[in-house]
């Protein structure tokens, strides 16, 4: 019973809390996508899944002592106006990793548009089948099923 040993939580959960949150959120989304019968609920699951991925990426870019990845006024002035070398002025640990932020910035907007498209298609499905329940739609699609 290694899991119950003293110190397990302090060593494995507290410093990696972000991963636990992302895994749990992602599994909630996955569960909704696999088991829910209603298409809108599936879409909600997909949105939660996406959010979990975004959380995962952004949390990887965090550094304990860092701020946002934007140069301050003084540093900008020192480099551009006074001509000091950027590697002297900029301390890498003081800036969060910009790369995950960039990737997720586009992912958020693309997520919104794909969600919009998915909602449009489900409106269309509702228009032709009068239901958003997956099993009822499959019933109607089956040959011999009532239309």
């Amino acid at each position: 019973m290694e899991f119950l040993a003293a110190g397990f939580i302090e060593e494995n959960i507290v410093p990696k809390f972000n991963y636990w949150v992302y895994v749990i959120l992602m599994m909630i989304g996955l569960f909704a996508m696999i088991t829910k019968n209603n298409l809108i609920k599936k879409l909600i699951g997909m949105a939660i899944f996406q959010t979990a991925i975004i959380l995962f990426y952004v949390s990887i870019g965090v550094k304990a002592e860092s701020g946002i990845p934007i140069l301050g006024h003084e540093q900008h002035h020192e480099i551009v106006e006074e001509g000091r070398a950027s590697s002297e002025v900029i301390k890498k640990e003081k800036f969060a990793n910009p790369l995950p932020h960039v990737l997720m910035l586009t992912a958020i907007v693309v997520g919104v548009s794909t969600l919009g498209l998915a909602l449009a298609i489900s409106q269309r499905i509702y228009g032709s089948f009068n239901t958003l329940e997956e099993d009822e739609i499959l019933d109607q699609l089956r040959p011999g099923g009532h239309d």
């Binding site: 990845p69 934007i70 140069l71 301050g72 551009v80 950027s86 590697s87 890498k92 800036f95």
Partner: peptide, 14 residues
Amino acid sequence: IEQTINETKVPNMV
């Protein structure tokens, strides 16, 4: 982080 300011003069790395 280090070269953005030299190459583009833009403080916002993102």
